[in-house]
């Protein structure tokens, strides 16, 4: 059941989507087909799927470790933006220089930026007991404004006709494509690799064990001498670092600069990815692909049946609703009525 319910949730979402979009006056079946199936049916769209799935998997991997420990960092979007800002800072400071060291320096700065942003909720939670849920989210709004401030002010491209955006990064500051002319940049394989490493750390190290115990049985963890404080710092800094890395990958990859359009909601979507992937790295990679499909599919449905862009967000939230709803099947064994109805609906 643990691994069956995500598939059930996807099926239920497709069914409910057909009905809801139909009721709203769109071509329901076609809309759902566009969102869920069409991106997979077009091989020329596959690289785009990977480009979208990479940052989602990276951020969700970090979040999932925290969620396992009951650390509710919901401000990954802010950490993602902070990472992009810090990395871009290095890029602008090294403008005109060249060398292979620049890109790694940017990535390091990105990670540190994300970690710094996540360190605030970690500090406030461990020092004063302030809920990390609210502080991490508030900081997202602050990060967005900071981005606006920078691209409209000190970081505005002096040759950019007064548009609010930074200079384009130089080739030395841009993630290379994995092959000539490909959409897929080096950040994507790195993101997948990092997800696998995170799984190893969680499954095979004492720190990983600690995180799991603190989440599952806080009392036992305290009795065993595991530090809740350390777990909070570890999970928040880890998640912040990965979100920051995803941010600078996105800035130095598809964007190639910072613009006010940079915050695209990956940090929020990654929360859905983490849950759909069962907080497990392999599941998260699959879930990131599913969410990437709905993202690309949402664009197809926009041109195909005129569904507004926002429908994608609603669709993705429905996915999480159905996942949380079907989770009841894991904790309870239903007798007769409920599973029969659930199957009929799917």
């Amino acid at each position: 059941m643990l691994y069956a319910t995500p598939f059930l949730a996807v099926a239920l979402t497709a069914a409910a989507g057909t009905i809801v979009f139909g009721l709203m006056g769109y071509d329901g079946p076609r809309a759902v087909r566009d969102i869920f199936v069409a991106p997979l049916a077009h091989p020329d769209r596959w690289p785009e799927l990977l480009v979208k799935a990479g940052p989602l998997a990276l951020i969700a991997t970090g979040l999932s470790v925290g969620f396992r420990a009951n650390v509710w960092n919901i401000g990954a979007e802010g950490q993602y933006i902070a990472g992009a800002i810090a990395g871009t800072g290095v890029a602008l400071a090294t403008w005109g220089l060249s060398g292979a060291w620049i890109l790694p320096a940017m990535c390091l700065a990105g990670m540190l930026g994300g970690m710094a942003w996540a360190a605030v909720p970690a500090f406030l939670r461990t020092r004063f007991g302030v809920s990390e849920i609210l502080t991490s989210l508030m900081l997202t709004y602050v990060a967005v404004q900071l981005l606006f401030l920078l691209v409209r002010g000190p970081w505005k491209d002096p040759e950019g006709f007064n548009f609010p955006q930074t200079r384009m990064f130089t080739p030395d500051q841009t993630l290379p494509a994995i092959s000539e002319g490909s959409l897929i940049h080096l950040g994507i394989p790195i993101a997948l690799l990092v997800a696998c490493i995170a799984w190893l750390l969680l499954a095979r190290t004492v720190a990983g064990y600690e995180v799991k115990v603190v989440g599952l049985a806080p009392a036992a963890a305290r009795h065993g001498g595991f530090s809740e404080r350390r777990t909070i710092w570890l999970t928040l800094l880890g998640a912040g670092g990965l979100a920051g890395l995803a941010g600078i990958f996105e800035a130095a990859g598809p964007f190639g600069q910072l613009t006010p359009q940079f915050p695209g909601g990956y940090g929020y979507t990654a929360i859905i990815v983490a849950f759909l992937g069962r907080l497990h790295p392999v599941g998260i990679i699959l879930a990131a692909l599913v969410l990437a499909v709905t993202h690309v599919g949402g664009e197809l449905a926009q041109t195909g049946v005129g569904l507004p862009q926002a429908a994608t967000g609603m669709f993705q939230a429905m996915l999480l609703f159905f996942l949380l709803a079907t989770d009841v099947l894991i904790r309870f064994r239903p007798v007769l009525a409920r599973p029969a109805r659930a199957r009929a609906a799917a």
């Binding site: 929020y268 967000g313 609703f321």
Partner: peptide, 16 residues
């Protein structure tokens, strides 16, 4: 998790 989903849902559904 459900509350977060509700907010994501509200953002999307209200725009739609």
């Amino acid at each position: 998790a459900t509350g977060l989903a509700l907010t994501i849902f509200g953002v999307g559904a209200s725009a739609l």
